[in-house]
Design a binder for these strands. Structure first.
Lengths: 234, 234
DNA sequence: AGTTAATATGTAACATGTTAGATGTTATTA
DNA sequence: TAATAACATCTAACATGTTACATATTAACT
């Protein structure tokens, strides 16, 4: 597998493992979220195994995890396919995301420190630069980072991972939408409002800004469905 | 595997599959949640495979899923263990559960129909009977069913499954706590308040009742830690 | 005796062979 | 021609063999 030497020089503290299946999982997930693997496309395990230079086992393991996450669909004895977008599933994911992230930001706003606010603002600066240079990928990564930072700021162990997992479905859509121009500028403004509210320790304002921000996508989504119907199921 | 003939008489509509790994997953999960497999206990895959009459593959697959769910911990090349309870993880799970289920009950209270309310009350009647006869297992199952019904009443596809998954950690604790005396009676009262609020379409009251209900466990948890410290990590 | 190095052991991770079932195609029959 | 049955093909599911690594145990040495 062409991903670094694999030779661990010394015993790492607690890095629980970078197994092959983890690496395959990361690669496939990335490929799906970025639409490099398109919704509906078949995934041939054996081919993937061959391309990555591993056996079928870690590929199967990775795909099982992606199936739990709802990013692929496995039809027994038939095939594995990148999951198509489903409005009803996305609606649920939106709901979960709003519930989780508004709750998280309330806690974050309560307990925000100067240090945390500073790092949030740093992130926004970088977002501005990315937006100016129309760097979609960079902007997207910073967007994720911001949401992760807010989850962390809530001070709950493992919350970031849970939130990130529930975001999977939505991330695919978000990524696609970013390419439709003005969304990046709007998103930046919304992020600005969110960070300002946290800086002011305004719990309710922060929650409202977050809900507003997440909800915006629902409307854009319908546009996407008319423009790219082939990405959707049914 | 001693779980039914396995002969599918005809082509089921969409029952996506009851594969061996699904069955093993269900069995192990059940065993963990019921503390039949105690926190910290080692799980020997080969033994499990032998006992269930399957190969190591479906057992590994099932255990991988349980690891994602946080119910077991896999130490590579070393062993697999039932996860010990961790206060910080449980705190996060509580937070997620409150965020998710209060949001769900708000929707449920908005859109509740006479039919749904009727079924909620039926469930409460059965809970009362179970409590009277000190049927812990039965009560526990009805408790789960009630929460599932409320999720369903929110009318969002797949929400129940997400909520159930996030409850995993807490379910283990809840199950242990039920055996400590008066909790069953209290729980029943709290459930009553929740259902009443839904029946009245009182969104805020329902959410408050649910939050109250879920929060109660936090306090009981500390008692459990003093009584059964061996169940906890660190 | 205490410390370090060699070794034994057990397990998950990984590789690969085999089976069963879903689906598409072709042949057969009315 | 249309319906149906036999068959070919492909894939996930399952089984099992192999490897690498973490850990415990023992041995060697100061």
């Amino acid at each position: 597998m062409q991903l670094g030497s694999g030779g661990k020089s010394f015993r790492e503290q607690k890095v629980v493992a970078v197994t092959r299946k983890d690496q395959v999982y990361t690669i496939l997930r990335q490929a799906i979220i970025s639409s490099q693997l398109a919704p509906g496309e078949a995934i041939r395990k054996e081919l993937v195994a061959l391309q990555l230079g591993v056996s079928r086992t870690p590929v199967s393991d990775a795909i099982n995890r992606l199936a739990d996450e709802g990013l692929v669909e496995i039809y027994p004895q038939t095939g594995t396919f990148v999951a198509r977008l489903r409005l009803d599933k996305i609606e649920t994911a939106q709901f979960v995301r709003i519930a989780l992230e508004t709750a998280a930001i309330r806690r974050a706003a309560e307990r925000s420190t100067a240090d945390i606010v500073q790092r949030l603002r740093d992130n926004l600066d970088r977002q501005r630069k990315a937006a100016d240079s129309r760097d979609f990928e960079g902007f997207y990564a910073l967007d994720e980072e911001l949401h992760d930072m807010i989850c962390d700021a809530a001070g709950l162990v493992g919350l970031r991972e849970i939130a990130a997992k529930e975001r999977s479905q939505i991330d695919r859509v978000r990524r696609l939408l970013l390419h439709y121009e003005t969304r990046m500028v709007e998103t930046l403004k919304e992020h600005q409002a969110i960070v300002d509210a946290i800086a002011d320790n305004s719990v309710e304002r922060a929650a409202a800004a977050m809900e507003e921000h997440i909800s915006k996508m629902g409307k854009m989504l319908l546009q996407l469905q008319t423009k790219r119907p082939e990405l959707f199921a049914d």
